[in-house]
Design a protein around this nucleic acid. Structure first.
Length: 470
RNA sequence: GGUCCCAUCGUCUAGCGGUUAGGACACCGGCCUUUCACGUCGGUAACAGGGGUUCAAGUCCCCUUGGGAUCACCA
């Protein structure tokens, strides 16, 4: 059995979006699982709409997700001579013909047909004209069979068939001599030896025309697998209206690529009751036949849940590295002072759903001159608070060790000595250290901050609270 | 409108003729707790409708309804 060859073929007219990423992922997984070849091909035959920025954005998205390709990226725009030659072959064989109808009159006919409730199909005006190139502008149309049935067995959807009379003579070459997608994709997939075409199911209606083209060109027809679309919360095709659709936008929102991969693969595919899959498990367990037939709604909440999981269980050192740019956006550079970043990350891992949240939660560690949350101060700081904090600070300074457990026992001793409960001093300490009422455990915070900085923040707060109360 | 695809909790799904229809997210409670989270225990919630086939249908067939895709000198 020969190796299967797969491809992801985005058009560079925008960034890599969620749907494209999932299609790429399915291709990649199948290639890695079967030891096949994964090819990246840029479909830039529409010169007017294709941009280098889009190509870069797509490549960047693929790299972020860790979807590496074995061959390419290939650019269709570099193959124009080949396509032209294939068009000539078809013309010479009488399987295609020149059409002189203008775009305007075609458009008019289409609108008329639609308005009258008829199918907007090419009427075949030039189909049997014959003759050769006489200098007038023309497009080349494929002479499609007018009867019979074209069918294929989709790996995901099962058997699908179309009556050929529903298909019209599609244009394969524009009047400017450049080829059209449906033609190019066939030539390229054939030339590249693609055995299995995995793509969005919005291509199902293109498939019979393409099969006819494969046959006309004398190529073997590949196997098809059409993956269902991704919908927005209102069940319409996912678009900007539903929120971010760019894969890279999710990175910028603090998502981890493994969370994205895990989410995307589970949207439409499952393996029993499992929810969490490592890359290795996916390669082992994925199968294209197990992909569901129906479209799925993109659920950001579940993506976030997965992200939280991967942050919680992720490698602290790596997360610290990933956090850097988010901290930089907040004007913080851990390298220029402050507590150890990895220690900071450790206190935030199980309470941050995104790297962005983690960055927000880390800010106070690197802000020596904190401003205190007014509302929290008003509510939590009592007249006696300062003396409590003073007792605690004194004990802390005298304490031998400054570890989580050591701090905890000092806390307990101080509370016992003062005859107060944790709740009477804890909130004030939290405000003194973090500026507000939400932070990791204060023992952890103190340990990360270190004895010196902890005591400094406590004393600063005591001074402030005392002054504030006149 | 023609053609094609699809249909289990709000969402993602398990199910592949006989199940108290399971899991996950979200949501609602309890526990844990110095805050926020995490964790943990429990709860609400689904087979679109109608015909068949069968001893037996969420599972197979047909119709209806609903949703989606597509009908470019875009990809």
């Amino acid at each position: 059995m020969s190796k299967i060859r797969l491809r992801f073929a985005p058009s560079p007219t925008g960034y890599l979006h969620i749907g494209g990423a999932r299609t790429a992922l399915f291709n990649w997984l199948l290639a890695r699982k079967t030891g096949g070849t994964f090819i990246l091909r840029i479909e830039d035959t529409d010169v007017a709409r294709s941009t280098q920025e889009s190509v870069d954005a797509i490549l960047q998205g693929m790299e972020w997700l860790g979807l590496d390709w074995d061959e390419g990226p290939f650019y269709q725009s570099e193959n124009f001579p080949l396509y032209k030659e294939k068009v000539q072959d078809l013309l010479a064989a009488g399987k295609a013909y020149r059409c002189y109808c203008s775009a305007e009159e075609l458009e008019a006919k289409r609108e008329k047909a639609l308005a009258e409730g008829r199918k907007p199909k090419y009427d075949g005006t030039c189909r049997n004209l014959g003759g050769s190139d006489d200098g007038r502008p023309f497009v080349v149309r494929f002479k499609a069979p007018q009867y019979g049935v074209t069918s294929f067995i989709d790996l995901i959807k099962g058997p699908i068939s179309f009556n050929n009379e529903e298909l019209d003579d599609l244009i394969i070459q524009r009047s400017d001599g450049t080829p059209i997608y449906n033609f190019v994709v066939v030539v390229d997939d054939a030339i590249m030896g693609i055995t299995t075409v995995i793509r969005g199911d919005d291509h199902i209606n293109n498939t019979p025309r393409q099969i006819l083209l494969y046959e006309a060109l004398g190529y073997a027809v590949p196997t098809f697998a059409h993956v269902p679309m991704i919908l927005g919360s209102d069940k319409t095709r996912l678009s900007k209206r539903h929120g971010a659709t760019s894969v890279m936008a999710y990175r910028d929102m603090g998502l981890l690529p493994e969370a994205m991969i895990n989410y995307l693969v589970r949207l439409g595919w499952s393996s029993g009751d499992e929810e969490i899959f490592s890359r290795e498990e996916l390669i082992e367990k994925f199968s294209i036949e197990a992909v569901g037939k129906s479209a799925g709604v993109f659920n950001p909440d579940k993506l976030l849940w997965l992200n939280a999981h991967y942050i919680k269980t992720g490698d602290t050192e790596r997360l610290a590295g990933l956090l850097l740019p988010f901290l930089a956006e907040r004007g913080i550079d851990p390298a220029s002072g402050g507590p150890d970043l990895q220690a900071v990350v450790k206190t935030l891992q199980e309470r941050a759903k995104t790297m962005l949240e983690m960055a927000d939660g880390a800010v106070f560690y690197y802000t020596p001159e904190l401003s205190y949350d007014e509302e929290a101060v008003a509510k939590q700081i009592k007249p006696e608070t300062s003396s409590y904090l003073q007792s605690l600070t004194t004990a802390l300074k005298a304490g031998p060790e400054f570890s989580h457990d050591g701090i905890e026992s000092i806390f307990k001793e101080v509370c016992a000595g003062l005859g107060i409960k944790m709740g009477q001093i804890g909130p004030a300490v939290r405000i003194a250290l973090s500026g507000g009422t939400v932070s990791p455990s204060i023992y952890e915070v103190m340990e990360v901050l270190g004895k010196e900085e902890t005591c400094r923040r406590l004393e600063r707060a005591i001074a402030r609270f005392t002054a504030g109360q006149g």
